[in-house]
Design a protein around this nucleic acid. Structure first.
Ligand SMILES: [Mn+2]
Ligand SMILES: [Mn+2]
Ligand SMILES: [Mn+2]
Ligand SMILES: [Mn+2]
Lengths: 222, 222
DNA sequence: ATTGAATTTTAGGCATGACTAATATAACAC
DNA sequence: GTGTTATATTAGTCATGCCTAAAATTCAAT
């Protein structure tokens, strides 16, 4: 059993399969093409290779799945990514919307030593600035509070944002200005046709559904 | 005039040409092949491309030279590399012999934002842990004290190490154990056939010529 | 069951950046 | 000057990872 180091592309494929699997039941070739910003034939080719390496399994028209080994690698890359995001924010004064892009490149390039160094420095954090869980050093996903998308919450009450499900710079920068960030306590006023009305630190907003559905909150039963 | 981002390979070629030029009068295709650890035909091919991009000039059997533009890029990469080395040593607890390898990969991947962030954090340093000058943000080489290789120094006197001319991990780790690092004051005892006899912090060594010639010292005229 | 649409794969190409084997050219020693 | 050696180039391959155009397959709706 060799360990021939994967290419950046291959690492991104595995990582993306993992992330898509977290959301959807099944991961299609097209999903991958969309997320990775390549054409479908490229996905076919790469998946074929990853299959041959026993990193993924593929049932045509049914979906792609990671093998044990493939998942380990995906988690390794994800750990790099999320540790880096937090590090850039905390230690290098990156703003909320800048960290993803930089981490996307660095994740493939840092050594295990680098990973360990920043993890130590930050006291082995469990979540990144977007609320995404950071896999532990032995590649387990840390426990997270159970979360639900903002539009699914009923009643009028006070809740806490746990995670934002986007990496889009424009949306992130908007969320930041609206103080819609993980850890923030918000008051649920009313679920209206156009969006969710909330109060945050005194001021009231109507958060459009397109945005509200990206905001997942701690699901404290009333 | 486009700015199509160079590949890591191309950046390494430019950087290596610059570094070789600092030492030797002329830079041959073979020098490059050796340093970059590729075969000569690969160099021919790449140099041809870099010529077409107006980043280098090449007179066969005479040598390779950077153009203005090529040199700017080389300095940019070199700045990344040396800032990173210092950063890894200072902020992430890397040892002297580990920094080069990591910086070699990171240098191609960090953004200008990252560069500026670590430069700020370290108060715009002028030299890396090996004593190599760090090009400034506007890509000038900072003034360094005039240095000379240890074996070339005459007389018996006290001098200060300014720079070590190697990136070899084994040699670096040796130098570190012997306290032969930039900033270190050493006492020149005698230039012998086998090497240079010196006293450092009380103890005496015979530094073999193969190593001594890598140690450049501030040339304080007696 | 049939048909039309969506999904996926095949076929064929292209750019990069390496390689080996063979050839050409310059430099140098006599 | 000639011949030998070091240096450089050419020619031809290969692996990656992407692409477009076209064909195949499955799904879904009637
Ligand atoms: Mn990536
Ligand atoms: Mn994140
Ligand atoms: Mn490099
Ligand atoms: Mn250095």
């Amino acid at each position: 059993m060799e360990k021939p180091r994967l290419s950046e592309s291959q690492e991104d494929y595995l990582k993306e399969i993992f992330k898509l699997r977290e959301m959807n039941e099944t991961v299609s070739m097209q999903d991958l093409a969309r997320k990775l910003d390549v054409r479908p034939p490229s996905v076919t080719g790469m998946i074929k290779k990853l299959c041959a390496m026993n990193l993924v399994e593929h049932e045509p028209y049914k979906g792609v799945q990671l093998t044990e080994t493939g998942e380990k690698i995906a988690l390794e890359v994800l750990r790099h990514h999320r540790l880096l995001e937090l590090y850039l924010a905390r230690h290098l004064n990156y703003s909320w919307d800048e960290i993803h892009e930089e981490a996307e490149r660095l994740e493939h390039v840092i050594s295990e030593k680098f990973e360990a160094a920043i993890a130590d420095l930050m006291d082995h954090p469990t979540h990144d600035p977007h609320g995404d869980p950071i896999p532990t050093a032995d590649l387990e996903i840390p426990d997270s509070p159970s979360l639900a998308p903002l539009p699914s919450l009923k009643g009028t009450r006070s809740i806490v944002i746990g995670r934002v499900m986007t990496q889009d710079r424009d949306i992130l920068s908007l969320l930041f200005r609206l103080e819609l960030t993980p850890g923030q306590e918000i008051e649920l006023i009313k679920n209206e046709a156009a969006g969710i009305r909330v109060r945050i630190n005194g001021s009231q907003y109507l958060v459009p559904h397109s945005i509200a559905r990206l905001i997942w909150c701690e699901n404290t039963e009333t």
